[in-house]
């Protein structure tokens, strides 16, 4: 995957809570067997049915940071949701809380999820809506989000990132390759598994 160190871009305020992955990309787009090309399905129902949907507004067309309400990415485990966001030009999603599987999937493909308090999200929403061209910088090295407040003022919001995941993202490392370094541990474990545990081989 692509490494993530720091990213600067404009942001889009998605003022919705509990955005499930069916909204990020509906099931009909999941029939494809490729890993790219999902941008046409990104939030497609809201884009189609709601003229005022935030991503239909020209000032947010080029946003690369999505700032969402709490509980982003609930529901289906579809990693296509992460791919669709990346294909749609997003590198970062900010929310006060993410669903576990979505958050986990995002770390596998280089989409950064940043957790902020809802109060910080509200401030960021207000700043973006005041000036949609405002540049937001998300620095994974420093674990900080920085944005302008106007009048020469800027805000810096620290965020948490566990050291291991951060290291993997900064280096763009592939999990499978890392695990393969521990094949001897896997073999040792397999040697002591219970003999009666089932296999899926046909038995009748």
């Amino acid at each position: 995957m692509d490494a993530f160190t720091t990213h600067t871009g404009t942001a889009a305020p998605l003022r919705r809570s509990a955005v499930d992955t069916d909204q990020i990309i509906p099931a009909e787009y999941l029939k494809r067997i490729t890993r790219t090309g999902f941008e046409d399905g990104l939030f497609v129902a809201w884009r189609t049915n709601e003229p005022n949907f935030v991503l239909n507004q020209p000032e947010y067309a080029d946003a690369s940071i999505l700032v969402a309400g709490p509980d982003f990415g609930t529901g289906s485990s579809r990693e296509h949701a992460v791919w669709a966001l990346l294909d749609g030009g997003f590198r970062v999603v900010i929310s006060s809380r993410f669903a576990d599987i979505f958050k986990n999937n995002s770390t596998k493909s280089g989409l950064l999820t940043v957790v902020m308090t809802q109060a910080e999200v509200e401030k960021l929403w207000a700043a973006i809506e005041t000036d949609p061209t405002m540049q937001v910088t998300v620095d994974l090295q420093a674990k900080e989000v920085t944005y302008s407040l106007g009048g020469g003022q800027s805000a810096t919001v620290p965020f948490e990132a566990d050291d291991y995941t951060r290291w993997r993202l900064l280096e763009g490392l592939d999990d499978v390759g890392l695990t393969e370094r521990h094949l001897d541990d896997i073999e040792a474990f397999e040697a002591r598994r219970r003999a009666w545990l089932p296999t899926a081989l046909p038995v009748r």
Binding site: R35, G75, S76, S77, R78, E79, H80, V82, I101, N104, N105, K108, S109, D175, V176, T179, E180, L183, I186, E190
Partner: peptide
């Protein structure tokens, strides 16, 4: 598939994963 949690009814630890993790399990178990 997120509804893998179903299998927990048997006292198994069962959970849904994304496609990158599917690849990881296929490759390394």
């Amino acid at each position: 598939d997120s509804h893998t949690s179903t299998h927990g009814a048997f006292g198994a630890l069962a959970f849904g994963i994304g496609t990158s993790e599917v690849e990881h399990v296929l490759a390394t178990q």
